[in-house]
């Protein structure tokens, strides 16, 4: 077994520098690497490019890095929940590349799978297609999208083992397995870290080969963005 465990968050983030590109897993605030983000927001790293489906909210998730103006560029699909983000974007302080969500997922997966580019119908005929090669397949136009990679990928799982194998829970899986594949160094934080051999190999979602460092997060706030409920009859 190759042991991927780092004893603390400082070691997990070793090598992080200004002007790097990070991938950050999560959908909304669900499945975000809370501990890594909190630690990054206290470090003096700036000029970052962050690839993440969303940009957190004003005071949580990637919003913490935006507040300190650590992010130079965001690559996301939907950023509607963050007022500070919108302000920085409209004022030109923050560079933003909005891309279709499925393309974001597939571009991450492709990078990890050794596929440099692929054709997709998503975005054809829109601003997203500007400057991109168009080819027709099965009578339908498709645009060329390239793989997205990152110096670091920060992901969060429910359970992990010392070999770096990961199991996710619920819809907190989302982009995490794909970004884990795409990162040059993938840092996985988990709610529960167990010795190798304890997780059933049949149940593992992300093989440890895609994970370079793993640690158990200190605590998880798991904030809910839209609490919706129904009444009991």
């Amino acid at each position: 077994m190759i042991n991927k465990v780092v004893s603390n968050i400082e070691k997990a983030l070793q090598g992080v520098e200004s002007n790097m590109t990070f991938m950050v897993g999560g959908f909304g605030l669900s499945g975000i690497p809370e501990n890594s983000i909190a630690a990054l927001s206290k470090m003096d790293v700036f000029g970052l490019t962050c690839i993440s489906n969303n940009a957190g909210v004003d005071d949580f998730g990637l919003g913490l890095l935006l507040q300190r103006k650590q992010i130079k560029k965001m690559i996301s699909s939907y950023v509607g929940e963050n007022a500070e983000f919108e302000r920085q974007m409209l004022s030109g302080e923050l560079e933003v590349d909005l891309i279709p969500q499925g393309s974001l997922a597939e571009r991450s997966r492709a990078a990890g799978a050794g596929i440099p580019a692929f054709f997709t119908p998503a975005g054809y005929g829109t601003e997203v297609a500007e400057g991109k090669e168009v080819r027709e397949y099965n009578g339908k136009p498709h645009i060329l999208e390239s793989a997205l990679t990152a110096d670091f990928a920060f992901v969060k799982a429910w359970k992990g083992d010392t070999a770096g194998n990961l199991i996710f829970k619920g819809t907190a899986r989302n982009f995490n397995p794909l970004m884990a594949m795409a990162g040059k160094i993938t840092v996985a934080e988990v709610e529960e870290l167990v010795p190798a051999g304890e997780l059933d190999p049949n149940q593992i979602h992300t093989p440890g080969i895609f994970v370079q460092r793993i640690f158990q997060g200190e605590k998880y706030e798991k904030r809910i963005e839209q609490k919706t409920t129904r009444k009991r009859d």
């Binding site: 996301s76 699909s77 939907y78 950023v79 509607g80 909005l98 393309s103």
Partner: peptide, 13 residues
Amino acid sequence: VKGMGGAMDLVAS
């Protein structure tokens, strides 16, 4: 400027 989310993938397919 909220973004397209999954809408472009959905309508393309």
